[in-house]
């Protein structure tokens, strides 16, 4: 798997999304829950659109981390 593309502007939020790409299987579950943060593109790779998403996305991001079948997502504060 390739590293996340560092697009998206950091907005000074304390939350940081980290994906372990050795575990990630690109099954896009996270994208279904938080499409503003996770995107699986046509090349079948997962891209993290915002590594430091704004606070209002916390619930979605946490839910995505919880539901990721590979437990590949961690949310750091």
């Amino acid at each position: 798997m390739q590293p996340p593309s560092p697009t998206g502007e950091p907005r000074g939020a304390e939350m940081k999304v980290v994906v372990n790409f050795d575990l990630c299987e690109s099954n896009a579950v996270c994208m279904g829950i938080a499409p503003e943060v996770f995107e699986v593109r046509d090349d079948d790779f997962l891209y993290v659109l915002q590594e430091e998403p704004p606070e209002e996305l916390r619930e979605q991001v946490t839910e995505a981390a919880r539901r990721c079948p590979k437990q590949a997502i961690t949310v750091e504060d």
């Binding site: 099954n27 896009a28 579950v29 994208m31 279904g32 995107e39 699986v40 593109r41 046509d42 079948d44």
Partner: peptide, 12 residues
Amino acid sequence: VNRPRHVVQARM
């Protein structure tokens, strides 16, 4: 099959 994005978008 190797279309994860399509499946997830359709699921939504």
